[in-house]
């Protein structure tokens, strides 16, 4: 008798969580989760693009890694609201292009 109740509670929590992430109605704990997800892209963006001034001193493998990280970030930024998306897609593109440009120049040299 106890087991089905536990299962019911787990299912209810699961449904609650699903609701929280898929609709505008967002209970506090899940909003925190979403906010973290949103902050994650920004953290990664800041981390990747903060090093572009050093692009000339990175190895080709490091540069490839940066380009890959930029590519992974793109779909996350595409999910943002219109204003944010417009600004950060452009910034990400500039950042990626610079790494790719330096990588290309290295590969040409080799």
């Amino acid at each position: 008798m106890k087991t089905p109740r536990i299962i019911r509670i787990i299912l209810a929590l699961g449904a609650f969580a699903g609701f929280g992430t898929s609709s505008d109605w967002n209970p506090g704990i899940f909003r925190v989760g979403l906010a973290h997800a949103q902050e994650d892209w920004r953290k990664e963006f800041d981390d990747v693009c903060s090093k572009i001034q050093d692009a000339m001193v990175f190895t080709p493998d490091e540069l490839r890694d940066f380009v890959g990280r930029c590519d992974k970030l793109k779909p996350q930024i595409e999910k943002l609201d219109e204003s944010q998306k417009k600004v950060y897609l452009k910034r990400l593109q500039m950042c990626r292009d610079l790494y790719f440009f330096v990588l290309g120049s290295r590969e040409k040299k080799q």
Binding site: Q53, D97, L98, S105
Partner: peptide, 15 residues
């Protein structure tokens, strides 16, 4: 300007 304002959009060659 930093680096990325000019490269590679405006100046695309390094060599």
């Amino acid at each position: 300007n930093g680096c990325e304002l000019c490269h590679p959009k405006i100046f695309k060659d390094v060599k």
